[in-house]
Design a protein around this nucleic acid. Structure first.
Lengths: 130, 130
DNA sequence: CAGTATCCGTCTTGATACTG
DNA sequence: CAGTATCAAGACGGATACTG
């Protein structure tokens, strides 16, 4: 990237990269998107699959994704209620870049973890007055 | 993604996807990586290029990337001091998936912004008692 | 079942000022 | 030049309890 290519609007919250990178970085959003890549899933199923997340936070995540047009929320008129979440075409189109990133992660995160250990060890030694 | 494919360790901070997605979502990290894709850059240059970030936050970002083994920091013994930051091979390998994601963003963020407007309008109408 | 309502600690980000 | 120190503010994620 050349100097002149850096958008003057990096601070613009609507800068394309910022919008997407933020969503990717969201603690649960990417996981939900990848889960929904397998087809529609109802709320309670999502909860089971991502059992560490509380209903409040899961709902927040889903609402944000819905607002961004990445998933749809369909309420089935039943008793008990049933709500299905499903990727939109837009959401599905995100699956590929997301998968590429996940593959990069699986291939290279071991190196990152090693680098962290090495860095931390060097820091420790420095602190010990060496 | 099938149910059984969901790693039981989503809460593991060392889960590959989590590590990378978090770094991508960092407010300045991805931008710095892409800037450094053009070759080594010294601290003051980075500051000018990303002029909205304070030195403290820029330093934080750089330290994190260095710890992760994505960039190197080289101090030149000069007066005045000069410090260059540069991508490692690991950092460079991240450039491609990052670019793919940025391209997806540039192509699809307009749709996301439209979706947000539509969603917000619908919400407003609902609030107005319609 | 599918959420919502409250409350709260932590982590992140930034403003401002200072230093080797 | 290349940072560090300190302080403050807000966003974020989560625990817990309750509801149509």
């Amino acid at each position: 990237m050349d100097t002149k290519d850096i958008p003057a609007n990096v601070l613009d919250p609507n800068c394309p990269s910022r919008v997407v990178f933020q969503r990717i970085g969201d603690k649960w959003a990417s996981l939900v998107i990848q889960v929904l890549g397998g087809g529609p899933v109802r709320f309670s199923e999502l909860r089971k699959m991502v059992s560490v997340v509380t209903p409040k936070v899961l709902t927040q995540t889903l609402r944000t994704l819905e607002r961004d047009g990445l998933i749809t929320r369909t309420i089935h008129a039943q008793v008990p209620p049933r709500v299905d979440y499903e990727l939109t075409a837009l959401g599905e189109s995100l699956l590929q870049p997301l998968t590429m990133l996940r593959e990069w992660a699986e291939n290279h995160v071991p190196s990152i973890l090693e680098a962290r250990d090495a860095y931390d060890d060097a820091q420790d030694e420095a602190v010990l007055g060496r």
